[in-house]
Structures are given as structure tokens and as C-alpha cells.
Nucleic acid binder design. Structure first.
Lengths: 247, 247
DNA sequence: GCTGGACTTCCGGTGAACGGAAGGACTGGC
DNA sequence: GCCAGTCCTTCCGTTCACCGGAAGTCCAGC
């Protein structure tokens, strides 16, 4: 917008401002926020003031800034993620009660799995997936389950650009994982994300058999109930799909 | 910002645009969105384009617009509501498993209770509280539990401005409800929100004994376990408070 | 009392945002 | 097949809201 020497618009700035908050929820200093967002202090001050006027941010005395309740409210009142979450929650709780381990719900966004919800319990094994957190497709069972049930075209595009920063996997390896997941109807990764944990995920399919979400669990490697576990996840996934179609 | 004939800034417009989405999650037509937000069509078109460029909104072919995943992600990655939710979820699940009824978590915002989380189950009685939904203080047990444990000054201010649009309650009635809730340590409303349901809520207190949140349940009127129910809620609330203090 | 760091206010220039008007795209009625 | 209606999209000259350096204020810590 007007006169930005950097040539970005007000929208850009607002997005940068909101994105500047790290996962840890605590408030940021105004000047800290300014540097994280890459904005001049004065500009940050003015924008924060405006946003705070709408309750999208909150300023504590002393210049600390944190995301506001109203922002949370607005976004969580109407969001595609919310509809999905609402449809899935009862089924996720059912799964959790039976297994007493982590349950998660993810969608595909870009070339990553975005986790929409996670239920965990004291005593569950470690679970890297955070709510609103992301994981690369090829090292999350959720990501594999999602990508294995996409258009051929999208899979090609994904594999075409695939590079593993750590160089452990080639595109061909991922292709094999996807093929296996598509064939079996579920994806699994043993000890990949964390040694000692086992991720298993099934797709939630729409009418065209495309994955709109994935439902997964993280269990200890010793878990023996695979025979019962996968059907339970698949049944739940079907229930979620039905809920989504009805709404 | 620049040149708005109506004198509002770009920030104002963006807020209006995002607020324009109603609870129901479905997408809006561009022109519909424009009129709901009270913005000229051209302006709406431009802003939506910019916001969509950042993924804060998504445009479907045909001009339909809906909130974007990235917006949800940004907000749910860092928010005071999220920290509260995370601290409370395990306790809410415990309560739910025992009672098998609706459990909700609310905070005070303005003169309303804002519901941060709700767990419900097939077979639960009706529950008006929606996630990210609001209810007036005087007709929600959550609201009463929250207000009953605020500063005297804030209570005075609240009662001073109180008017019941339906004219059924006077400020003195609400004062009595608050006094009872403060004395008992929990708030209850029988058949007020919905005939046949009974709302019970306890405050989550910080070190200064101020309510930062409320934990509540909605049960059928026939529920007989009040003797056990309130202590269970209070124990859970104390657990949540401990989690919050530790974090 | 002084120094450093952080927040806040001021203010003139300027270019991004504004929105009317015109152009497409699509649909349904006849 | 044409026409009317509805909606989305693009164009472009004018304007004023935003920008950000500089100066002011506040508050700890030494």
C-alpha cells in the first residue's frame, strides 16, 4: 500500500505481522515483533494499534503484544477446518477411548500435511503432530495417506518436485510408499518420525474417492492390535465422510 | 487507508471482510460478501484477491469465497485461547467420560461468555454453546461462574450497564445469581437456556482468585449426581489452573 | 543523575488504494 | 438463437491515508 519503500501492501504487512508470532503463545515485545515481521518500528506500532482497536491483537501495558481473542473467534466461527473438525471429533474420541493413544486429523495443504486436530492423553507415546502444525508428506503417515488418494496428476507433480533435504529418500522410494498405501488402504511409518513410535493413517474419502482428510494414530512399536486397528480407523473415516456429505 | 470515501482504513475493511462470514461455514458469493461487509464490489474484489494470494481466503472458480486454511493455521498456531484449550482438554475429556454429557470451556470477553471448546457426544442433551460462540453472562452458567469471580469493580460496572432485552431479569436478580454463585463456588441454571437442560459451571481461578475461564457441563434435568458432579468439576478446574500456572 | 533501550507522537511527501465505468462470462427464458 | 439479467473481472485517473525519519517521553539499571 501507500508509500511502502519495500513495495508491499497493507495486506502483506498484516499477514507478516500475524505470521510473526511463533508457536509459543506468549506475547512479543513491540520491537521484537517489528524485527520478526521485518517492518519498521513505527509502522508496526501503528498497525498494531489499529489491529488492537479491532481486538485482533491485544496490547498489554508495557508494550507487549499478543494475538487477540477476537481474531481467534472470527476465524474459528467460520472455517473449512472447523467443519471438518466438528464432523470428526466424535469419531476421534471413540478411537481414542479404545486405543488410549494419540489420534490426529490432517488435511493436505501444499506439499505438507496440516494437522487440524489432535487428541492425546497422559501416557501416550510422543507425537510430533501439533494442532495447526505441519509435517512433510513423505515422513508422516497422514501425509502419505492423503497423497496416496489424490489425482494422478497431482501425484506426478508432487513426485516431480520432490527432494528430501536430508537425502535419505529418492522420489522413487516415495512413489513406492504411496503405491503401497493406495493398495492397502492405509499408510504406516514405523519408527521414522520418532524411534519407538508407529504412525498409521487412513484417508477420509469424498464421493470421487479423493482424500479430503486423513485420520491417524500414533502407537508404540509394540502395539499388537493392527488387525483390529486399521478396520477401526477405516470405519471411523467412513463415518466422518458421511457426516461431511450430510452437512 | 487511502481514499476510502467512507473514511475507514484498510485494516477496518479487512476485519469487516473476515467478520462478514456467518457461522455457517459455506462459501459466499463475491457480491454477497461485498454487501455483507458493506464494501463496494470493486474494493471487495481487490481485497479478496490480495487476501487469497496469502491463503487467508480461498476463491473457488465461479467467484465463491471462503475462509482459507492458512488463516486458520496462523491463528491456531499462536493464540491465548489455544493455550487455555490445550491445558484444559485432558481434564475436559475426563469429565466427559464420567458423565457422558456436554462439557464446555469459556472465557469472559466483554459482557459475554465466549466458548473456547466444547465436547459433545451423540446422545447428549441439547447444548446451545458453539465453539467460538457467545452467550450473554446472565443466561449462561459459564457466564455467571466467570462474572461471580471478578473484581468488585468489574461486577459493579457490569451490573450498572445491565439490561435484559427481554425484560425478564433486573440487575438485582443478576446480582443475586452472582452472589449465590460466588458463595457456592459454582453457578447453575435449570431450564433457562433450554427447557429440559441444566447448566452447571465452575470457575478456573488464577493465583489472585480471579476467574480466567469457566468449566461447565450441560446435563438433563433428571441428573441426580450433583453431589459428585460439582466436586469433579472443581477438581478438574483446579487441575487446569495448575497447568496454566506451570506453562 | 546519567545512560541505554523501549514505546509513543508528530508531520509533510507520495504512491498505493479507491471505485466508477466498461468489458466479459454465464445462465435461463422465450 | 437471441436477449435480458446477474455476476465477475479489468482499466485507469484522482486523491488522501499511509509511510517512516526524527524528536519526545518513560522507565530501569548502574
Amino acid at each position: 500500500m501507500a508509500n511502502s519503500s519495500s513495495g508491499d501492501s497493507v495486506v502483506d504487512r498484516i499477514v507478516r505481522l500475524i505470521s510473526a508470532f511463533p508457536q509459543d503463545v506468549n506475547a512479543l515485545q513491540l520491537s521484537d515483533l517489528a524485527s520478526r515481521a521485518g517492518l519498521p518500528l513505527t509502522t508496526t506500532h501503528r498497525l498494531v494499534g489499529q489491529l488492537a482497536g479491532h481486538g485482533l491483537l491485544e496490547t498489554a501495558p508495557g508494550g507487549m503484544v499478543r494475538p487477540g481473542l477476537r481474531l481467534w473467534e472470527l476465524v474459528n466461527r467460520a472455517s473449512p477446518a472447523l467443519a471438518l473438525r466438528q464432523a470428526a471429533m466424535p469419531f476421534m474420541e471413540d478411537i481414542q477411548q479404545v486405543l488410549n493413544q494419540n489420534v490426529n486429523l490432517a488435511v493436505l495443504d501444499g506439499w505438507e500435511a496440516l494437522f487440524v486436530e489432535r487428541l492425546s492423553r497422559r501416557g501416550s507415546v510422543a507425537n510430533r503432530a501439533q494442532v495447526a502444525g505441519r509435517m512433510p508428506i513423505h515422513i508422516s503417515s497422514a501425509g502419505l495417506a492423503l497423497m496416496a488418494h489424490q489425482d494422478k496428476a497431482m501425484q506426478q507433480e508432487y513426485l516431480g518436485q520432490f527432494t528430501d533435504p536430508e537425502g535419505r529418500l529418492a522420489a522413487a522410494d516415495v512413489r513406492a510408499l504411496l503405491a503401497e498405501a493406495a493398495h492397502q488402504g492405509f499408510a504406516q511409518l514405523k519408527g521414522v518420525v520418532d524411534a519407538g513410535t508407529w504412525g498409521i493413517a487412513v484417508p477420509v474419502l469424498d464421493r470421487r474417492q479423493r482424500a479430503v482428510a486423513s485420520l491417524g494414530v500414533v502407537v508404540p512399536l509394540q502395539e499388537m492390535r493392527l488387525q483390529a486397528l486399521v478396520p477401526a480407523l477405516q470405519t471411523a473415516a467412513r463415518g466422518i465422510a458421511r457426516q461431511l456429505a450430510d452437512a
